[in-house]
Amino acid sequence: MTQDTTEASAAASGASATDTFRRSGKLSKVEASQERVNELASALVGAANQIILDKKVSYDEFNALKAWLIKVGEDGEWPLFLDVWLEHSVEEVATEHREGNKGSIEGPYYVPEAPQPADNRTMPTRDDEPGTPLLFQGQVRSTDGSVLPDAKVELWQADAEGFYSQFAPNLPEWNLRGTFTVDEQGNYAIDTIQPAPYQIPTDGACGQLIAAAGWHAWRPAHLHLKVSAPGHELLTAQLYFPGDEHNDDDIASAVKPELMLDIQPAEGQGNQTTYDFVLDPER
């Protein structure tokens, strides 16, 4: 059952993330005007040049940057780099208008079309899945308070050792990935396990940057979700566990107070938590 962390290599994770991104349809061309491209590209290049001038970057440092950027591509780590260090700002811009639940980043480990379990309750796991059982339940409503009986809750997560299926070896394809429908009152209940905190892969270019800068590579334990309903905006979120030592210094800067779970002992084995989702109508 125990997997060596070196098995979930940066190269393998990067290749999986890149392949998943390509299959997601997000590569479709953005219809941006020449003025908008000029605005964004000029701002990016201008900011980079200003850093060089302000920080007196040497040719040796410039060449080290070029070598590192090449290595990011060779290691297939652009999805990881962009999702860890930049996506949280993109997500903030994309959802700043919302009145319902706060969202969070999707991250590099999402795989679409996770199957719906036959009982619409039990998260797909191995027969001997390690970890503390967790009952994750709640209700999905609209911002006007009405329940959304046609809502879906898509859940994916790391296992109790910090590994994601399809991004680490020796895990079933859909382990700890599932899609669930709510009942007529908008309620859902999912039996899963508590995930573990984990380090992003550190044997590639991103790990090289982390080591050189003296940063850490840890993400706090979290559940990933996509919650959808007809006529409403898709909510992508990560929910976090109180007491995790990296809630305050998440490498991906994705933790928000509104996303913290309230963990309570379950009546039987393990823990339980209730978290309601409020979705914004489509604009």
Rank of each mutant, 00 (worst) to 15 (best):
M1W: 13
A17P: 00
E184H: 04
Q269P: 08
F62Y: 09
D276S: 06
I105W: 00
Q166S: 13
Y109F: 07
A266S: 11
P124F: 07
R121S: 15
G243H: 00
N101T: 13
A196W: 02
E92V: 05
D183T: 01
T132G: 01
A252R: 10
L176D: 07
E92L: 13
G100H: 01
A221K: 08
Q34S: 13
K66G: 13
V57S: 11
R23Y: 01
E91A: 08
A217K: 04
W78P: 02
T6W: 12
I251R: 04
S42H: 06
D83C: 08
E91L: 02
L209Q: 11
A41S: 07
R141S: 10
L86A: 12
F241A: 02
L134R: 04
A48N: 15
F81R: 10
N49C: 11
K152W: 03
D19T: 15
I263H: 02
D128M: 07
P112S: 07
E74Q: 14
S28D: 15
I51L: 11
T274Y: 15
A211F: 05
T273V: 06
V45A: 15
I105C: 00
W85V: 07
G46N: 02
K71P: 03
E99V: 06
A160E: 10
A254V: 07
D83E: 09
G268P: 14
F180E: 02
S253V: 04
A266H: 12
E99Y: 11
F81I: 11
G186T: 00
E129P: 01
F277P: 09
W215C: 09
I190N: 02
